[in-house]
Amino acid sequence: MRIGVVTFPGSLDDVDAQRAVRIGGNEAVALWHGDHDLQGVDAVVLPGGFSYGDYLRCGAISRFSPVMTEVIEAAGRGLPVLGICNGFQILCESHLLPGALIRNDHRKFACLDQRVRIENNHTPWTSSYADGGEITIVLKNGEGSYVADTETLDRLEGEGRVVARYVGENPNGSQRHIAGITNERGNVVGLMPHPEHAVEDLCGPGTDGLGFFTSLAAQVLS
């Protein structure tokens, strides 16, 4: 699988995401925010970081990058898209996902190994996990609290579109302990924690995040 990883000005986890893509057995394709061509990739990852310095709102400027015009159109055709941390914020700003990410309720930057439960393993990004399985991956954010109106939250719950949920103490005040969600079609996933930092035993809390980067190929083979 050829998976494109977009670099925006201020991205800082793009190289980590590319490495995770390769460790997961895929080809990593570097995409630039100014690109008008997705280079025929099979999927796209929007990585974490501080695109455009988080000015205005996190992800608000990146949403208008030329590459996002292509990503939005391709996602509408079913292209798998994964937004991690800042990438999740960009997906919400692009209206590919509902809701928003706001300042952590404790007003501090959070950086820890976080326990997460996989609530939906039917997406292209989570099929390698057991439904209800718990994993430990890295969480690092200042604006990681997921919020939406009650109707939206109820719809996400009722349609099984909560992909991942925090286990134990809520690290950022995210409503209903939501760590990740998907769109109605299931091809677009936003995740606040960082699976790309948990793909090797040498670095990070283990390899629990690797499933996000092996799931695509596993679905094709099945």
Score class of each variant (00 low, 15 high):
187 N>I: 10
110 A>E: 14
72 I>V: 15
128 S>T: 12
188 V>R: 03
6 V>F: 01
66 P>Q: 09
206 G>R: 04
39 Q>C: 08
139 L>E: 12
154 D>M: 04
112 L>M: 14
74 A>D: 06
99 G>I: 00
93 E>P: 02
106 H>F: 03
185 R>L: 13
118 I>P: 11
50 F>G: 05
37 D>I: 01
16 D>R: 01
189 V>E: 13
119 E>V: 14
220 V>N: 11
188 V>P: 11
155 R>Y: 14
192 M>F: 08
32 W>T: 07
10 G>S: 09
25 G>S: 06
43 A>D: 05
213 F>T: 08
206 G>S: 12
87 G>F: 06
157 E>A: 13
198 A>D: 06
44 V>W: 05
110 A>R: 14
33 H>T: 01
138 V>N: 12
215 S>P: 10
171 P>A: 04
221 L>A: 15
116 V>R: 09
173 G>Q: 04
68 M>G: 01
11 S>D: 07
90 I>M: 12
169 E>M: 09
78 G>N: 11
54 D>Q: 07
167 V>W: 00
130 A>F: 02
48 G>V: 00
193 P>Q: 04
112 L>Y: 13
68 M>E: 01
66 P>C: 04
172 N>R: 06
221 L>W: 00
27 E>W: 08
197 H>S: 14
212 F>T: 09
47 P>C: 00
98 P>E: 12
159 E>N: 12
68 M>V: 06
5 V>N: 00
80 P>V: 10
105 D>E: 13
89 Q>G: 05
18 Q>E: 14
181 I>L: 02
56 L>S: 09
184 E>I: 00
